[in-house]
Design a protein around this nucleic acid. Sequence first.
DNA 1: TTAGTAATGGAAATCATTTTCAATAAGCTT
DNA 2: AAGCTTATTGAAAATGATTTCCATTACTAA
Lengths: 157, 157
Amino acid sequence: MPRGNCQGQGWWHGKFRGCGYRLTEGREAILDILAKSEGHLSAEDIYMKVHPKYPNVGLTTIYRTLDVLSGLGMVYKLDFGDGRARYELAEGPKGAHHHHHLVCTDCNKVIDYTDFIDEEVELLRETEKGLGKKYNFKITNHVIQFYGLCGKCSGKK
Amino acid sequence: MPRGNCQGQGWWHGKFRGCGYRLTEGREAILDILAKSEGHLSAEDIYMKVHPKYPNVGLTTIYRTLDVLSGLGMVYKLDFGDGRARYELAEGPKGAHHHHHLVCTDCNKVIDYTDFIDEEVELLRETEKGLGKKYNFKITNHVIQFYGLCGKCSGKK
DNA sequence: TTAGTAATGGAAATCATTTTCAATAAGCTT
DNA sequence: AAGCTTATTGAAAATGATTTCCATTACTAA
């Protein structure tokens, strides 16, 4: 039962089982919500959405599951600076929806953007390669985020 | 006494006073520590360093001051994913030490790097301009951070 | 000096996230 | 299908960083 670096491919069940994790009702429910919500959900958001259908899944399990998922690279844990972590499903098998975030520091609104992604991906590739070699780092992830004021907040009183 | 967007230039005293903030012993002490420590200090780290010399400066004041400083753009508030915020002085008048972070997700070691900054700055400039226009966002800041395993941790058991 | 208000610290309060622990359930083995 | 091993669970309690309260102190300007 390998438990460490299980970054293989395959979806859902396979990924879980292959790493020695058990596939439980609660975990599937959480994955389900994440998949259909397309948002940036906090642990509690998820709890709220899971609870009606699975009243016996507790907040603790949500946190634990998110931890596992993020460890497996299936979920990104995000920080928008408002004191609670947000989670979103990592892009599916296709790597389809690669995007980054634009955060309003006033109202906390978050915009997903996909502009400039090509140039960015290019830079990231180079940077990761360069940094990895220079600092002997095995880079697994990155965060790019812009902060500022959205139209509404920038035109406030 | 304007209190809002005080992003003018000028250093220290001027910046403070100009925004209606008072320059107190505690605030200077904190700025001092940040200036000479060149690190990524947590509120408590700062408290520890300030306390010997100014035993009457409390943790609460540290937090409050860091909040003000970060609001003024004099300090960056960073999140390395270990549950406590870190702070570092924004680059001085010169914009000299622009850098980003490489974070080991295992031992939490943080490396500051300045490689690829030129290309990056170029991309950022474009991105900020493009996003700002498209989403009507007034971008004030950004975060770029890479996560991975440092040499030591990647070669662990 | 005096009034008006910013700033302070210590204690208490918040609040997201973790830990503890006994009970339960998954998935392998037979 | 039944047993067995061990991952998983929920509820309650613990944790720990950050905030809030509030009465006191210290600037600043007139």
